[in-house]
């Protein structure tokens, strides 16, 4: 009986480790995702900084930024 318990415990532990591995994922959080410049003069450059937060438990990679 104790053998079965040990096997089940080990299996459960392995399952937990596997689930944790699957759950580890990158996550991107953009707290402020829009910005209104209001009135801006023609033919001039304006700028604003957006902050991207990596809140997951794996490395977040920015692959591409597509203008739109």
């Amino acid at each position: 009986m104790s053998k079965y318990l040990t096997v089940i415990t080990v299996l459960l532990l392995l399952l937990l480790v596997a689930v944790n591995g699957v759950m580890a994922a990158p996550r991107l959080l953009i707290k402020e995702s829009s910005f209104d410049f209001g009135y801006a003069p023609q033919n001039s450059k304006v700028s604003h900084k957006f902050w991207l937060y990596s809140t997951g438990d794996d490395t977040l990679k920015i692959l591409k930024v597509v203008p739109g």
Partner: peptide, 15 residues
Amino acid sequence: IQTNEGGTDKMVRIS
């Protein structure tokens, strides 16, 4: 913004 997060791309908006 395309990342390795999966799912749909996130975007920022300026106006």
